[in-house]
Design a protein around this nucleic acid. Structure first.
Length: 428
RNA sequence: GGUGGGGUUCCCGAGUGGUCAAAGGGAUCAGACUGUAAAUCUGACGGCUCAGCCUUCGGAGGUUCAAAUCCUCCCCCCACCA
């Protein structure tokens, strides 16, 4: 089974060029493919996992993935799918982001011994000479064709319009493909479905200038069962950077997957074998929770390492109760299945001086102070509605006084609702 | 540049002088039910030293006992025309 089939059955692929040739190319080892990443943020997020996982699949099947960071194109901004002009970024910011990207990608892809390449299109784009570029590359592009594309047309008709540099984005991206083809023998570009136009432009440019057939694949836009885009929560994107989204929160994000999405996400975001994932279809009701634990464990282990995943699992057990995971479920997963002694989770903690605590703090002020509630009024409401707990005891009065006597060696455990915890520690 | 229509609490959107902290919906947060899911039901949803008070309706002034609502100037957005 070639990677192409794997990606297809796991639900990655939306569209592709050259059905037969591409299948043949990926059927034998030693191929190469690339995906572009925009260095517009200092961290990747869950939305980037589809391209990342697909590169990882490529590598696992004997091909060499290339992650192309848009150090050059990031200074322009891709108009595809955007309705506003992008903010231009400084060179320094982009350099920082490129470094961060590589760190995160290396969790999924092995960059050692040139088994994968991190390329930066700044290397060739910044040195570009305008006249030769127009002569050699620009002449292959038709304005007529480009302005017919939906993404450009929208922008052209809008009041802001489309600036000349943005208009060149597709040409530059096509040129990237050409460069990677020349430098690394790269024959395949993959990308989001909004990239189809840009990818095809690259395919054509290589054909015209090198008389070679190269390929393109676009990924499906992954939506949740309710139709919304996946990867966003109320508090924003779910980041791969542990400083921006803690491994525990990352794990929780996956545990909270909708029932209907579990199998789909398992196929896309883990490497567990498909025949085992298929068996999930017969799992219903509360048993699905075990599947979600596995999903969360596997995804967290990929992004943050096995150790962090175990910590997150234990913290989850402490907060929500430990459960055994049946050995028959996804047997290939190396998730710890036994019911273990729950260890206290590494929860966000606030330290409060002893002197202050001995005077006593009203419960609602405490909840506000640690950030569980955004205002005193918010905290009052929470308490009034019975959603505030201290050491698993519901707080009954908003002005209940908390003093140092109630602090044991572990501190006080505050809880808002079912899922939000915060620890208070007393300091001298 | 001209003409017309707008800017309301996180978002959409009602509100044309007092009964407006401002309808309705969405999002969100609690509670119930559950399986840390979904759906449903209930409640909350500007701030505070909370049966009271304070600050909000693009900005600055003004009229009035009283303004989101009326007047003046300014800023921004949208549509059509140029």
């Amino acid at each position: 089974m070639s990677v192409l089939d794997i990606l297809k059955t796991r639900g990655f692929i939306e569209n592709q060029t050259h059905e037969a040739e591409l299948s043949e190319y990926l059927g034998k080892e030693g191929g190469s493919c690339y995906i572009g990443f925009d260095p517009t943020a200092d961290s990747l997020h869950v939305g980037h996992l589809i391209p990342i996982m697909s590169l990882a699949h490529m590598q696992r099947n004997g091909h060499r993935p290339i992650a192309l960071v848009g150090g050059g194109t990031g200074m322009i901004g891709d108009p595809s799918g955007k309705t506003e002009m992008r903010q231009m970024m400084t060179v320094e910011t982009i350099e920082d982001n490129v470094q961060a990207l590589k760190n995160q990608l290396s969790h999924f892809i092995d960059f050692n011994d040139d088994k994968a390449i991190l390329a930066n299109n700044a290397d060739w784009l910044r040195a570009l000479a305008y006249i030769p570029f127009l002569r050699d590359i620009g002449r292959h592009f038709s304005i007529n064709r480009m302005i017919k594309a939906e993404s450009y047309r929208q922008r052209i008709e809008s009041d802001e319009g489309l600036s000349f540099i943005e208009f060149n984005y597709q040409i530059l991206q096509a040129y990237d493909f050409l460069q990677l083809h020349d430098l690394h023998d790269c024959m395949l570009q993959m990308g989001g479905s909004d990239q189809w136009g840009n990818i095809v432009a690259g395919v054509e440019l290589v054909r015209r200038t090198r008389q070679k057939t190269v390929f393109g694949i676009t990924f499906k836009l992954i939506t949740k069962s309710d139709g919304s885009k996946m990867g966003k929560t109320a508090s924003g994107a779910v980041w791969l950077d542990p400083k921006k989204t803690s491994p525990y929160d990352y794990y929780q994000f996956w545990v909270n997957t909708d029932d209907q999405d579990v199998a789909k996400f398992m196929a896309l975001f883990t490497f567990l074998p498909m025949d085992e994932i298929k068996q999930l279809e017969t799992v219903t009701g509360a048993d699905l929770n075990s599947a979600k634990q596995i999903l969360a464990f596997e995804t967290t282990a990929l992004a943050h390492g096995r150790e962090e995943a175990i910590k997150a699992q234990d913290a989850t057990a402490a907060a929500f109760g430990a459960k055994e995971i049946p050995p028959t479920m996804l047997p290939s997963s190396t998730v710890p299945r036994e019911k273990r002694e729950a260890t206290p989770p590494t929860l966000p903690t606030t330290q409060i001086p002893k002197t202050e605590l001995s005077e006593g703090i009203a419960a609602y002020q405490l909840f506000q102070r640690v950030g569980l509630c955004k205002s005193a009024g918010d905290a009052r409401r929470l308490i009034k509605q019975g959603g505030a707990y201290i050491d698993d005891q519901a707080v009954t009065a908003f002005d209940q006084i908390i003093t140092g006597d109630q602090v044991n060696e572990k501190g006080i455990l505050l809880r808002a609702g079912k899922k939000r915890y915060h620890r208070v520690e007393m300091t001298d």
